[in-house]
Design a protein around this nucleic acid. Structure first.
Lengths: 227, 227
DNA sequence: CTCGCCTGTCATCAAACCGTCATAAATCCG
DNA sequence: CGGATTTATGACGGTTTGATGACAGGCGAG
């Protein structure tokens, strides 16, 4: 799923420009020109980042920011503010209020995007880590967690590494030797058949009542995990 | 303990200015004008943030940044780069390389400090004086106090630092070595098993009758504190 | 100086995990 | 169909790992 960004900007032309550029980079963009509405939209679906013009109608940007920070659910959403050149006072107040960054108008879209990316890189992993998802199975490397359609699964260390090895290489048939090299390490002198046993244990762990087996046995070749 | 900042800047006068201002705000500041040396200094004691001039002698700033990002231990240290006005190309490359922010020369110390604080707040909220809260546990770095659902808990010094280390990195599995480096210091030659014992003590201190254990043991990997 | 708190290490125990094997089941091939 | 090859499965012994309680040294407060 693409990162989603909320753009709060009352200059329609600029709004359009941003929206177009962010879209081109693969973000889901929603826009509004109104501070009140922005808060509603955030509550409705929390975006991964917010680009917020400091000078918008109705509610000043700083107030929007303050409101966001007050609510626990939105307190950590990265906010980039847009300010006019020279309003250094504003910028400092903005950063103190909890904005994470600012860009001075006029700015280049490329610069803005670079900033958005820098910010997401910083905020995202701490929230979720890199999560692999295949066929309803989610694997989070950072937190060492595995879920299937929501509920947590318990895997032993080797099963975890094995599953990750598969999920990093979906739709590819992996030979037992490849699997041994990748999961156990290049120089392990372990019987190839042992892979079978761990595949069995992995299957037992991730296939609960009535669910289907995401690991396909390929006779005389190895195993493969299909999307 | 004050947040520590490494300033990498070859203009001695500017270096002095930054150092003085940051000191006045309560930071521990180390400085160097040389990229090579900067990398050594970082390895020796990882600072909480780095201010990095983009145009320094020997090694260009961007290279320093790249090196920092490559090493797991330093990959998450916030970097603010200093660039000359008008070098937008540089700034974008810098942000893409993993710098977290930039300030354009000339700049006001106040602005720089505001940015440093914004960055610290994101990377280590406890350094910015915020109270961390996870799963009913509140940790106030400034007053060195910990509560769980209201009542104060008594932790020893090491337990406190250990808990803070976890709360600053929620939902991430931390290896015993990482924990040793982060809580005891990079060069402590302490047995990894000692971490187990302190985890036990921490658990005993924060888990009262009937409450659940916020620290998860991840076999063969380490421990993690979940939200 | 003495007491109490904090710390790092160790020995021990129980549980989890691992690799191997024997056997059953499945699949292929002539 | 029958033999051969390959995979699935259950069981087992041994090992690793984490939890826990005990202990002695260090350090600061009184």
């Amino acid at each position: 799923m693409n990162p989603s960004i909320l753009v709060v900007e009352d200059d329609a032309a600029l709004c359009e420009l941003l929206s177009w550029n962010l879209n081109a980079e693969g973000y889901d963009v929603r826009t509004t020109g109104d501070g009140e509405e922005a808060l509603l939209m955030v509550r409705e679906a929390i975006p991964d980042a917010i680009i917020l013009d400091w000078m918008i109608e109705q509610v000043p940007g700083i107030e929007v920011c303050r409101q966001l920070r007050k609510d626990r659910a939105t307190a950590r959403v990265p906010v980039i503010m847009l300010t006019a050149r020279g309003e250094e006072e504003d910028r400092i107040r903005g950063l103190k209020t909890g904005a994470d960054d600012y860009v001075t108008k006029p700015f280049s879209p490329r610069e803005l995007i670079a900033r958005v990316e820098a910010l997401l890189r910083r905020s995202r992993p701490s929230l979720a880590g890199d999560t692999l998802t295949i066929g309803g199975i989610e694997l989070d490397s950072a937190s060492h967690r595995v879920r299937r359609s929501g509920d947590a699964l318990h895997l032993g260390p080797t099963e975890f590494r094995l599953l990750r090895y598969f999920m990093e290489r979906p739709n590819r048939v992996l030979s037992r030797q490849q699997i041994l090299d990748g999961v156990w390490g290049m120089d392990s002198d372990i019987d190839e058949r042992t892979v079978d046993v761990h595949i069995r244990r992995l299957r037992k762990a991730i296939v609960r009542e009535g669910e289907d087996d995401p690991i396909r046995t390929v006779r005389a070749a190895g195993y493969s995990m299909d999307a």
